[in-house]
Write a protein that binds this DNA or RNA. Structure first.
Lengths: 217, 217
DNA sequence: AATCAACGTTTGTGATCACAAAAATTGGTT
DNA sequence: AACCAATTTTTGTGATCACAAACGTTGATT
């Protein structure tokens, strides 16, 4: 069910490509990014790359430094806490709103995604785990049918993605306990409060886990 | 204390110019925007305008339509409620955080801005009122020292600005009761809860007032 | 008079060029 | 060998060109 790549502007497909690289941790914080380099690696001219980069700067996924060079922002302890704070305010709320529009079909899809994610986790497929985790959360958030909140949360994930990958690749994913099943169980019971709490617990646990291994901050 | 416009890139000054036009309601919802037209009116080439427009699209201040044309988004009842919801979640929180870093100097500045805003309001200077209101709120929000939340709220104001202007120009500002003085009073008493409540009341009142006159939605 | 096809115009998109600032490299001096 | 100045290369920025899609207009047909 991926949207087709044909009849897309080069600009849009460039954006999606770069966005995914950032979101799933293919680009490490601090490493500088050059427009011509990106253009060559994506086989397009610098023009759409420039617009894509501007867009991602606006979404805080990239940072325009004083030297006018572009890089994935470094994570700091302060910024980490700010993102954690914002996520905890917005994401459980989105989950609450999603509850109203949930269907059995969607619940089954979520369980399916979660299984896939678990398998990736067990087999050490970090990129697969991150992608599955993203799909799980955003399938829920999209059900909230609230574009304004969704775009805010989207920006937060773009800011957090690179760092998440960096941490996992340092300390492994073995300590991750899956909170998603608790969430889907609550959905099956139409337990709104339990569901919201499960999402909150999932964030708390993930962020605490990462924050505790703060060797990088 | 405005940052100097010299030694800024054309890109950045173009962004700031267009951003202010949107934020303070110089551009009405629905009216299409052409790149060449903007470029001519700002006396620059289309190139920096394109990047600026992309940036503002990412911030949801502009909308890229299916016909590939760019416009200020129309407000809908649904989107209005979503923005209201998001603002009420984030802005009182920012105000709470700001409380910690408040100083007597800042309180006096806020009172000063509020006076200026009141005068604009009484003399029917709509642009002046909107600018003053913005300065008042964002002086507080910046004190929270939380870039992540600040950029989220910034996006919300960019989305709401054009519509606010549109409403005020239809129904006037006479019904506006100033809640800012309550806020500064609470600050002077270092009353954290009172201050947060005042900001929340200010939003509630403003949004309800505008939402009630929903002839445009 | 209404409808629609054909035309010319406007607009967004992508690529390229020219330039200046920044970074990297080179070569000379202590 | 270490340091610094001069040169070369790389990179971001802004302007311009070429092209195709969307838009508006005109004019003919029913």
């Amino acid at each position: 069910m991926q949207p087709s790549n044909s009849n897309l502007t080069v600009n849009e497909s460039t954006y999606r490509a770069l966005r995914e690289k950032i979101l799933f941790g293919d680009m490490l914080p601090g490493r500088p990014v050059t427009l011509r380099g990106l253009a060559e690696s994506l086989d397009v001219s610098p023009t759409p790359v420039r617009e894509t980069v501007r867009r991602l700067i606006a979404e805080r996924a990239l940072n325009l430094q004083d030297n006018r060079r572009v890089a994935i922002p470094e994570m700091t302890s302060k910024r980490f806490q700010e993102i954690r704070h914002a996520r905890l305010m917005l994401e459980p709320e989105l989950a609450s709103l999603a509850m109203i529009n949930i269907t059995d079909d969607k619940i089954n899809s979520l369980i399916e995604i979660d299984k896939k994610t678990d398998i990736a986790l067990e087999s050490g497929d970090l990129a697969g785990y991150m992608r599955g985790n993203y799909e799980f959360h955003f399938m829920i958030y999209r059900l909230a049918n609230n574009d304004v909140l969704l775009s805010l949360v989207d920006s937060l994930w773009l800011q957090f993605g690179p760092y998440m990958r960096q941490v996992y690749s340092h300390i492994g994913t073995s300590a991750l306990d899956d909170q998603h099943r608790v969430a889907t169980k609550a959905l099956e019971n139409r337990d709104a409060i339990g569901f919201k709490n499960a999402i909150m617990e999932d964030l708390q646990q993930g962020m605490t886990f990462i924050g505790a291994s703060n060797t990088l901050l």
